[in-house]
Design a protein around this nucleic acid. Structure first.
Lengths: 219, 219
DNA sequence: CCTACCGATCGGTAGG
DNA sequence: CCTACCGATCGGTAGG
C-alpha cells in the first residue's frame, strides 16, 4: 500500500535529508523516476492504463499533478517505460535462474521447470506489476513500441525453444512445438488473473502442476 | 466493418419501411438495442472499455451521441449487458455441442475435446467479441455485477468438472484437477490474444494441440 | 519539481 | 431517438 501523497510529501518536508544543501543531486532524480515507474506499474495493473490518470500516478508518488511530465514526456511514454523495465528485469531473472541451475546440470524436463518457475516468479512474485502490465495493456502502445517490445519478447522466449524441441523429440511433449508454446504461455500468463499469494498454492505448486499438465514421463 | 454512422442514418431516412405508420414497433427497438450491443462488444474488445467512448459506440450503430442512453442507462450497463449476452450464448452453444455429441457416446477424452472445441468457437469463432470482453474487461464492472457473472461462469464450467475428475482418476490427467482446470482455461483463453483466423491453424488444429498437450494416452 | 492553467473529450441529461 | 448542452476530468504546458 502506498502512503497517501499528502502525508508522504509533508513527511519529506518535515524530515530534511542529512546533507543541508539543496542541490539537484540531493533531489535524487533517479529515485524519483523509479518511484514514478513503480506507482505507475501498480496502478496500471490494478485499474488499467486508460482508467489511471497521471494525477493518480503523481499522487501515489507524492508529487503534484504536473510533475510526472518532468520525468516522462507523456503518459504513453510512462507506460512504455514500465513495459521495458518489466521485460529487462524478466530477462535478467531468467538468465540468473538458468545460470544457477547449470551447476546441477538438470535433465531437459528439469530445464523446463526452471523456466516455468522463473516465469511464475516474474509474473506473480514480489514487485511483479511490470510484466502483467506489459501483457494486459499491449493495446495502449504504438505499433513502433509494440515491435520494439516484441524483440525483447523474442529474447525472453529464446531459451524455451531448444528445450521444447528436445522434449518434443523425446516424446515428452506430444503437441506441435509452436502451438504448444503459445498454449503453455497462455496457461502461465493467465495465472496473473486468478493467482492469490495469500491462498494455498505456492509458486512451486504452480510450477509442479504445470509440469504435470504439459509433460509426460516425469522423473 | 460497420457502415459509417452518417450514411446509415441517411439511407434509413431515404428508404422508408414497408408499413407507412411511424409507430414504436416500426422502429424495431429490439434490433437497435442488439446493434448497440454488437457495436459495443466489437469496440470494447478492440480498444478496451475505457478507451471506447459512448460516442464511438453510437456512431458505429448509426446513432447520435446521446442515443445509447435511451437503450442503456449508463456505459457500465452496456458493458455488463455485453458480458451477460456473451455468457448466455456461450452456455447455450456448449450445451448444444454436448447434446450433439451424446448420440456418438464418446469416451471421456472425447468429451473433453468437445468442451475444448466449443470453447475455442465461443472465444474465436464468428461473432466472438462478447466473451473476450467478459474475460479482459472484468476490472471495469462493479463487485455486484462481477459476482452475478461468476454464477454464470460456474454454470459454464460445471460440465468440465466431472470430465476432468474422470480423466484424473484414469491417469490421463496427472495434475491436480483444480490447478489443472485453471491452467487449462488460461491456455485456451489466452488464444484470444494471438489467434488469427486468417493464419494457418484452424479451431480444430487448436483443439487437437490442446488435447495433446494436456491429456496422455490419447486413443 | 510546483503553480496555475488550457483545450479537448467524456458520460450523461432535459426536452422534445 | 435527436438536439443542445453541462459539469467534470483529463493530458499536457508555461513559467518559475
Amino acid at each position: 500500500m502506498p502512503t497517501p501523497a499528502t502525508s508522504t510529501a509533508s513527511a519529506a518536508a518535515k524530515r530534511p535529508r542529512g546533507r543541508p544543501r539543496k542541490t539537484l543531486e540531493d533531489r535524487d532524480d533517479g529515485n524519483r523516476r523509479r518511484e514514478l515507474l513503480q506507482s505507475a506499474a501498480k496502478l496500471f495493473r490494478r485499474k488499467g492504463f486508460d482508467a489511471t490518470s497521471t494525477r493518480d500516478i503523481a499522487a501515489a508518488a507524492g508529487m503534484q499533478s504536473g510533475s510526472p511530465f518532468y520525468h516522462f514526456k507523456s503518459k504513453g511514454a510512462l507506460l512504455y517505460a514500465v513495459m521495458q523495465e518489466g521485460m529487462g528485469s524478466a530477462i535478467e531473472r531468467q538468465q540468473q535462474a538458468l545460470q544457477r541451475a547449470e551447476a546441477e546440470t538438470p535433465d531437459i524436463a528439469g530445464q523446463l521447470r526452471i523456466l516455468i518457475r522463473s516465469h511464475f516468479e516474474v509474473l506473480l512474485g514480489p514487485g511483479s506489476d511490470f510484466i502483467p502490465v506489459m501483457l494486459y495493456e499491449a493495446r495502449a502502445i504504438t505499433p513502433r513500441q509494440r515491435s520494439a517490445l516484441a524483440a525483447l519478447r523474442s529474447d525472453y522466449e529464446a531459451p524455451w525453444t531448444p528445450v521444447l524441441n528436445a522434449l518434443h523429440a523425446s516424446g515428452q511433449l506430444r503437441a506441435e512445438v509452436k502451438l504448444a508454446r503459445l498454449l503453455m504461455f497462455g496457461a502461465l500468463n493467465w495465472s496473473a488473473q486468478w493467482f492469490d499469494a495469500r491462498k494455498e498454492a505456492s509458486l512451486d505448486d504452480l510450477a509442479d502442476a504445470a509440469m504435470q499438465l504439459f509433460i509426460r514421463d516425469l522423473e
